[in-house]
Simulated scan of single mutants.
Amino acid sequence: MNFLVIFFGIVLLFIIWLILDFCLGRQKHHSSVRKMETPILHGDFDIFTHGKELFHDYFSVLREAERHIHVLFYIVKDDVFSQEFLSILKEKARTGVEVRLLLDRLGSWKVKGAAIKELRAAGVEFAFSNPVKLPYLFYSMQVRNHRKISIIDGRIGYLGGFNIGKEYIDEDPSLGPWRDYHLKIGSESVNFLQSEFLMDWERCTGVDLQGVAKYFPKLPKGDVRQQFIPTEANQLECMFISLIQLAEKSITIGTPYFIPSRKIFAELQKAVQRGVCLTIIVPSVSDHILVKEASFRYLRTLLREGALVYQYNKGFYHAKTIVIDDKVADIGTANFDKRSLFLNQEINCYIYDPNFIDRIKDILDKDIHDSTRLTLEQLNKPNLARSMKEAVAGVVSYFL
């Protein structure tokens, strides 16, 4: 009996510590962030939806770098493909190119000490972003740098959903072909990506490089009107709500995880009720436990109100996009889930160019064609295992 009292006392204290750690850590985080967004910029843009094509282009640009390579990824794995990526960085550093590599501490946990030692020996400047640290251990574990940006010679940038690992080039048979959206960026828009990388670098290393002129060459204006908006803490929720409120005819959302906040969900319902056609594309297979089941409570309600939901079935769908009418298309690193809304550091690109928006809509039409429409009858069909997973997912949805 005494043992049980002690055991449950320890469990209760642990739960209280978790709650206090998270609440106090979140409070401190929210008090320290500041809103950032660029003015309207004019860049040159290309879009990749297939990993092999993206990384053929990306690795070629890395190999052609002459002055500096600055890279931030959420995930770098420990496999043959990842080793090729790291080898390119080491080769360029040995030739005198400045290489800086910033990786999320937990997302890239497979990058071991030996690999880091080799990178530094070759001349690569390496740092981990967002280490787990006191006094808020649990909260700091949750706040991840989910941005994926690269800048080469200050003239070419990349931003989107792909990370570095074999699954991103279709070599994980459990997930099948990986469908994602990643932007290649040129002209004046690159300067802000460079600035964002250097701010994250300073945050993690204490080294301020913003005033280094060689990182910011004078660049011409491109053809595509756009702006970048980096977010963290609760900033993304406000941005998504603003986008939804703009819609007059249609909203299309492509996301691997559909777990909206209460406020965003209410705005989506209002949009459908005022006659906006809401279309949601999600994967039919899942890469994480419970994320699929966490979406069902929201999808069930939206289907009942007239939304269209499609499950992509030609591999794993990891795209992160919102398209509002013909007005704006959002492509970036943020998922449509509570982790991206409230915890992760993200960066999104808002595109206002009608021609490029049409190109994105063509890609979405192809993805819808490669999907199966989800019906309310399917979600309401009795399934005890699914119902149990939905119940658990509802409790922990903030962290999925």
Rank of each mutant, 00 (worst) to 15 (best):
V309A: 00
P283Y: 09
K292H: 14
H288F: 14
S286V: 06
E293H: 12
A307V: 10
P283C: 10
F316M: 15
C277R: 15
S295Q: 03
I264D: 04
Y310C: 04
V276M: 02
I280S: 08
V282K: 00
C277I: 03
F265G: 05
S286I: 12
L303C: 07
L299V: 02
Y298S: 10
R300T: 07
C277A: 11
V291M: 00
Q269V: 15
H288R: 13
D287F: 15
V276L: 03
R262H: 08
A271V: 06
K292N: 14
K314I: 00
Y312E: 02
I264H: 05
A266F: 09
Y310W: 08
A271P: 11
L302G: 05
L268G: 09
L290S: 06
I264T: 11
E305W: 09
G315L: 08
Q269S: 11
I264F: 06
H288N: 14
V309L: 00
K270Q: 13
T301D: 14
V309G: 01
E305I: 03
G315C: 03
R304A: 14
V272F: 05
Y317S: 11
Q273F: 04
C277W: 04
G306K: 03
G315I: 02
S295Y: 12
A271K: 10
E267V: 09
K263Q: 14
L278T: 04
Q311I: 00
E267A: 14
R262M: 06
A294S: 10
L308W: 02
K292L: 13
I264W: 02
S295F: 13
I289Q: 05
L302D: 01
T301E: 10
S284P: 05
